[in-house]
Amino acid sequence: MKNLLISSIGLTFIAFTALTSVTVSAADDKYADVKIATQALSGSVYMLTGAGGNIGVSAGEEGILIIDDQFAPLAEKISAAIGEIAKQPMKYVINTHYHGDHTGSNAYFKEVHDSTIFAHDNVRKRLESSSDHVHAALPVVTYEQGLTFHFNDDTIRVMYLPAGHTDSDSVVWFEKANVLHAGDLFFQGRFPYIDLAGGGTVEGYIANAAKLIDMLNDETKIIPGHGDLATKQDYQAALDMMQQTAKYVADKKSAGVSLTTLIDQGLDDKWQDWAWNFITEEKWITTLYTDQ
Rank of each mutant, 00 (worst) to 15 (best):
M1Y: 13
L5G: 12
L5Q: 11
I6S: 14
S7W: 01
L11Y: 15
L11N: 13
V22K: 09
V22F: 09
V24T: 07
V24K: 13
A27D: 10
A32M: 08
D33F: 08
D33A: 05
A40M: 10
A40R: 05
L48N: 05
G52K: 00
N54S: 10
G56V: 01
S58F: 08
A59F: 01
I67L: 02
F71M: 03
L74K: 01
A81W: 07
A81E: 00
A81H: 02
I85S: 09
I85E: 12
V93D: 01
N95C: 06
H99Q: 13
G100H: 13
D101C: 12
Y108W: 08
K110A: 14
E111I: 08
E111A: 14
V112W: 02
I117Q: 08
A119D: 11
N122C: 05
K125Y: 14
E128W: 06
H135Q: 14
H135W: 13
P139N: 02
Y143K: 00
T148G: 02
F151C: 09
D153K: 06
M159F: 10
P162M: 03
A163T: 09
D167H: 04
N178M: 11
L180R: 01
L180H: 00
A182V: 03
A182P: 03
A182M: 02
L185P: 00
G189Q: 12
I194L: 06
T201C: 01
E203A: 13
A209S: 06
K211G: 02
L212D: 01
L212Q: 02
M215F: 11
T220N: 03
L229Y: 07
A230D: 04
K232Q: 03
Y235I: 01
A237G: 02
A238Q: 10
M241L: 04
Q243F: 04
Y248I: 04
I263Y: 08
D269M: 12
K270P: 01
W271E: 15
T280F: 15
E282A: 15
E282Y: 15
W284V: 11
I285N: 05
